[in-house]
């Protein structure tokens, strides 16, 4: 595989849902994105910004309304489910709700063996049960669970352990791309740190490419090399993790990072956004953020800013991006 080919590329992807009364919900509103091999992209935003929908569109778990989705240079936007199947082992998803993602009536071993039985090995042959068993033990070791876990049922595990099982299942077929939708947000802090570390270890050992969909900026900072900030269906800022989080160019990113309560006494948030996120059904004209933006000018209500490079490798969709120098919020 050519290292300069993106593992995943989105070209002006849109996803529109039809609502009653003829209304349309633009969950994803024209997103272009490249994820290079070995990259860990964090997709952040508040609820309803379309980040989960985008995550599902990336793997063609949802069909896109328009635009193109390319996996390893191959257009998968309109492939039939049958033609998609040989590609599925290469791209996998980890879901937020570790309980709902596991069938409660089946043993962990059966759950994990299923994709191995369904999909043929890379050489095109069916896997023997001996290779499957060997692979299952390998997976358990990989995610830090004892091999005895294979014989037990999902309810016997805690939330963190179930999330490890979900990760093992996603890794069973040796994917190149893993999309994780809020993989740690349902977990307690002490357990969350374990899973965050696991993701980092797995990347180092397997050379995976990740997309993390998450709302927790601190977690995203810990696991991503690059961050894309979404607001109302569009990417408003994208770039290297620390550049985006510590020197945000878009006022929304600045407000978002400022609003996260730090575990440090005496540090009150510097900037407060007023009001709630507008409904994606009738999003504001012009800049989608101008209704809540503390810096909004007349132009922002009329003309929609496009994503443009502020610095090399750092893009923002703002007419009046925040200061160029390395600032702290």
């Amino acid at each position: 595989m050519n290292p300069s080919t993106p593992v995943l590329e989105l070209r002006d992807v849109r996803k529109t849902y039809r609502l009653p009364r003829g209304q349309k919900l633009k969950a994803v509103d024209g997103i272009s994105l490249r994820v290079m091999p070995g990259e860990m992209l964090g997709l952040v935003g508040e609820s309803g910004c379309g980040k989960s929908t985008l995550g599902r569109c990336m793997l063609r778990l949802d069909d896109v309304s328009s635009g193109q989705v390319l996996f390893e240079g191959r257009d998968i936007t309109t492939l039939s489910e049958r033609k998609l199947r040989p590609l599925r082992p290469g791209m996998q998803m980890v879901f937020q709700n570790s309980t709902a993602a596991l069938n409660p009536c089946r043993r962990i071993g059966d759950l994990l063996a299923e994709p191995l039985r369904v999909h043929p090995a890379p050489d095109g042959r069916r896997r023997t049960s001996a290779t499957i068993t060997a692979r299952l033990h390998e997976l358990m070791a990989l995610v830090g669970l004892p091999a005895s876990a294979l014989a037990r049922y999902p309810h016997a595990f805690s939330g963190g352990q179930r999330q490890r099982i979900n990760i093992a299942r996603a890794l069973a077929l040796s994917p190149r791309l893993v999309v994780a939708d809020e993989p740690v947000s349902a977990l307690d802090v002490s357990v969350q740190a374990q899973i965050v570390n696991l993701f980092a270890d797995l990347r180092a050992r397997l050379g995976l490419t990740y997309v993390f969909v998450a709302h927790d900026l601190a977690v995203v900072r810990q696991i991503s090399t690059r961050v894309a900030v979404m607001y109302l269906g569009a990417i408003v800022e994208c770039g290297e993790t620390d550049a985006v989080l510590h020197a945000p160019a878009h006022p929304y990113t600045a407000a978002l990072t400022a609003a996260v309560p730090r575990p440090v006494v005496g540090a009150a948030p510097a900037m407060l956004l007023r009001g709630d996120v507008p409904s994606p059904v009738n999003r504001p004209a012009g800049c989608r953020f101008h209704t809540r933006c503390p810096q909004a000018q007349a132009r922002c209500g009329v003309e929609e800013p496009l994503l443009r490079a502020i610095r090399p490798g750092h893009e923002a969709a703002c007419h009046y991006p925040l200061g160029g120098e390395h600032r702290k919020v």
Partner: peptide, 25 residues
């Protein structure tokens, strides 16, 4: 102490690994 340490920091240097608490409550 361990609980405070296991929170990923948003500011300052980024540790390569989080000092997670092993095991479960």
């Amino acid at each position: 102490a361990a609980l405070l340490d296991s929170i990923p920091p948003l500011d300052g240097p980024r540790p390569p690994r989080l000092p997670a608490i092993a095991g479960l409550p």
